[in-house]
């Protein structure tokens, strides 16, 4: 009797959910029947995010596969692991073509900045040494504000996690020597606000070859292992030993149809005289994820080629107003 009561109670009540963003941990109680969209909207409202279309809630499903929560399905119907609280990472899922043209709100830019910086420092994105130093100088400006020669404590930067380890290992330089180089550029960013420095960071980072690419392990008909890269602009095919320069690219505008059948994935070009590109992935689950990313990126690609919606126009006007107001305040100071 008690047992059946417990089950009934569970099915009508709520369950604890933890959502980890790159700068906060949020805890909610979600109704048992809540959809992915209910949770996603709750997170966006809580952090004041309106440019919601770039983001998603990521989790490892009960089979250990990385998944994005579907918005139109119940949270509980998506193979989430039986852990308490149920935990999701709120992350950038789609990238714009140009950060400075498209990202409007400060909170959006900040979340992009944190995620891209983490990917560079973890070496998920290859970053050449010179770009690593320049990026570090913007990261320092964003964190500490203007360089001040009189109050600057030598060693401050040397102790920070500012450069990818691979870059440090490539040179015979002491921490102080790295600090000196970063400092030269840090000093050059004087008067830049946090959001300006973070935007400059993103402007440099978006030129890196691996920025904004979702890589998948695939093979072609000849069983040659390759990488498929899904990006804001289209699909890239890379040779296994070179994730930087694609061997072939398909812009979204050149693709007529994308589909999969079990482990086989088919890309049909607009030009009907061109052959279809067929590849194989290791799991159907992976093909589902690839298709989901293709659809999302293609939607955004099409949307960018139309006039801004009323909501985006308002958001841009508000952001512009807010920035000029702050600029006037800073000038007064």
């Amino acid at each position: 009797m008690a047992f059946s009561f417990l089950i009934r109670k569970k099915s009508t009540k709520s369950f604890p959910v933890k959502v980890i963003t790159l700068d906060a941990e949020l805890e909610f109680n979600l109704e048992w029947r809540a959809t992915g969209r209910d949770l996603f909207d709750l997170v966006c409202r809580t952090i004041g995010l309106r440019e919601t279309w770039y983001f998603g809630l990521q989790y490892q499903d009960s089979k250990g596969f990385m998944s994005w929560l579907k918005l139109d399905k119940k949270v509980h119907d998506q193979g989430i692991p039986q852990q308490i609280p149920t935990t999701f990472n709120f992350l950038v899922k789609f990238y714009p073509e140009d950060v400075s043209e498209e990202l409007v709100q400060e909170v959006t830019q900040h979340l992009f900045y944190l995620q891209v910086k983490q990917a560079i420092l973890r070496m998920d994105i290859y970053c050449p040494p010179e770009a690593s130093v320049l990026l570090a100088s913007y990261a320092v400006q964003a964190k500490y504000g203007d360089y001040d020669e009189t109050s600057y404590q030598p060693g401050l930067l040397a102790s920070e996690d500012l450069l990818p380890q691979r870059v440090i290992d490539q040179y015979q330089m002491t921490p102080e020597m790295w600090e000196d180089r970063i400092k030269i550029w840090y000093a050059d960013h004087k008067t830049m606000s946090r959001d300006e420095a973070e935007m400059e960071y993103l402007k440099v980072a978006q030129d890196l070859d691996m920025y904004g690419v979702n890589y998948f392990d695939i093979s072609n008909k000849k069983e040659t292992n390759l990488w498929l890269g899904v990006t804001a602009l289209g699909l890239n095919i890379y040779e296994k030993e070179n994730k930087l320069a694609p061997k072939t690219t398909f812009a979204w505008s050149e693709i007529r149809h994308i589909s999969f059948d079990d482990k086989k994935f088919i890309i049909k070009p607009v030009d009907k005289t061109s052959p279809n590109f067929v590849f194989f992935s290791q799991k159907v689950r992976m093909n589902k994820l690839i298709l989901d990313l293709c659809i999302g990126n293609h939607d955004l690609f099409m949307r960018r080629r139309k006039p801004d919606s009323m909501e985006v126009q308002q958001m841009k006007a508000q952001a512009k107003e807010e920035r000029s107001r702050r600029q006037i305040e800073r000038n007064k100071l």
Partner: peptide, 27 residues
């Protein structure tokens, strides 16, 4: 305060040159 891509290209070239003498052999 926004930086042009020209600024960034120049900065990257200058940093590259300043690091050059310290590269590990084969680096």
């Amino acid at each position: 305060n926004t930086r042009s891509s020209g600024y960034h290209q120049k900065a990257l070239a200058e940093i590259r040159n300043s690091l050059l003498p310290f590269a590990n052999s084969g680096g």
